[in-house]
């Protein structure tokens, strides 16, 4: 396990990418961004700025930068849509909460209609995240971490991108040791596990934004 990546809090996504790069020195290079498939339907192509001349490029770091750029783009669009709805206050009624959540869900689903898995978690990103998780769970606490995540976690459920997170499924615990190794997300989104899926969840709209199958190591 690359302890460097998880010993300290990685407050900045760039730090996560750098840490991962440090972990991966002895490993074969990941698929380059150029080899990645084009962005799926309904997901505009959002890519980080190309590296300046002479600047070193790490394929994993670049993949994560691409993911974060797409996440930030999603968050921007989320905010724009949310701004069209009445703002929830700290004294909201259940009716207001429910109305807003479902209205936002519909707006986002409409805007992202046709989106496919991999819009944010591109093949490159999936490979990086899986390797990152493998390192976390390969450590001495791996079994215990997995136990925390799988507590009340359904094994057989099927999820779909841009669909509502099922009301009957409790949220998985994501242990602090795992979150410390994953990139920081905007407030609207969280990483959660459902079975062995890692999902990117829009917690305001209760939507599965994207997912990675078999992300949780066995």
């Amino acid at each position: 396990m690359c302890r460097f990546a998880f010993r300290r809090f990685l407050a900045l996504p760039a730090a996560a990418a750098l840490a991962l790069a440090a972990c991966n020195r002895a490993e074969p290079p990941a698929q380059s961004p150029e080899q990645a498939k084009p962005a799926p339907a309904a997901q505009p192509s959002v890519e980080p700025a190309p590296p300046k001349e002479g600047q070193p490029v790490n394929a994993d770091a670049r993949a994560l930068e691409t993911m974060l750029a797409r996440i930030n783009d999603y968050a921007e669009r989320h905010k724009k849509l949310e701004d069209t709805l009445p703002k929830l206050s700290k004294e909201s009624t259940p009716e207001q909460i429910d109305r807003n959540q479902r209205a936002l869900q519909r707006l986002i689903q409409k805007e992202r209609h046709g989106v496919k898995p991999g819009a944010i978690f591109t093949p490159d990103v999936q490979a990086v995240i899986k390797r990152l998780l493998e390192k976390v769970f390969a450590g001495p606490d791996g079994a215990a971490l997995r136990g925390s995540i799988m507590d009340e976690n359904p094994l057989t459920i099927r999820l779909a991108v841009n669909e509502r997170y099922p009301d009957s499924v409790p949220l998985s615990t994501v242990p602090p040791q795992v979150l410390q190794g994953l990139p920081k997300l905007p407030e609207e989104m969280e990483f959660r596990f459902v079975g062995r899926y890692l999902i990117l969840m829009d917690v305001h709209a209760h939507l599965v934004v994207d997912l990675i199958e078999n992300a949780l190591p066995t």
Binding site: I97, L171, V203
Partner: peptide, 18 residues
């Protein structure tokens, strides 16, 4: 808890201040 939606933080009677 793990069964609770995040929007509960806006619910007046839970006093979570959002």
């Amino acid at each position: 808890g793990n069964h609770d939606a995040r929007e509960q933080r806006y619910y007046q009677l839970f006093n979570m201040d959002g």
